[in-house]
Amino acid sequence: MRISVQEQAFDLGAETSCFAAGHKDMGAIVTFTGIVRDLPDDPLIAMEIEHYPGMTEAALTEIAQTAVDRWSLGDALVIHRHGRLIPGEMIMMVATASRHRKDAFEAAEYLMDYLKSRAPFWKREITAQGEGWVASKSEDEDALKRW
């Protein structure tokens, strides 16, 4: 299991290949990548991501360990960036490895649902019209109920 909270960009292909290479006994690798999305009505100049050093790593480790245990994963990877990003840049990725695909997909969804609202990151959008903190959505909180 690897957790990385980092400012610098990551190479999705290299990270995925490296993750997949170590698991001969795992038949399924699922990855999810989050991208900074432009806003339709108000062009996004940048997104700034603040986090809570120390707690962020601990929270991500706990979330990933829960997924590994629950779905008997062979491995899990979480990379999440912070700092200033521009539209089109990759914010984060998760990868899960399991014997069969269902577990890998479910575990990846679980990781995403939890790190949306239980990992201490806060997004701030800077647009041509101004800037402001991204509000959390009630759907994100509701998404946790299915687990």
Partner: peptide, 10 residues
């Protein structure tokens, strides 16, 4: 002790 708004990761 830390105070913050609801988190918006991912």
């Amino acid at each position: 002790v830390a105070f913050f708004p609801p988190m918006t990761g991912g």
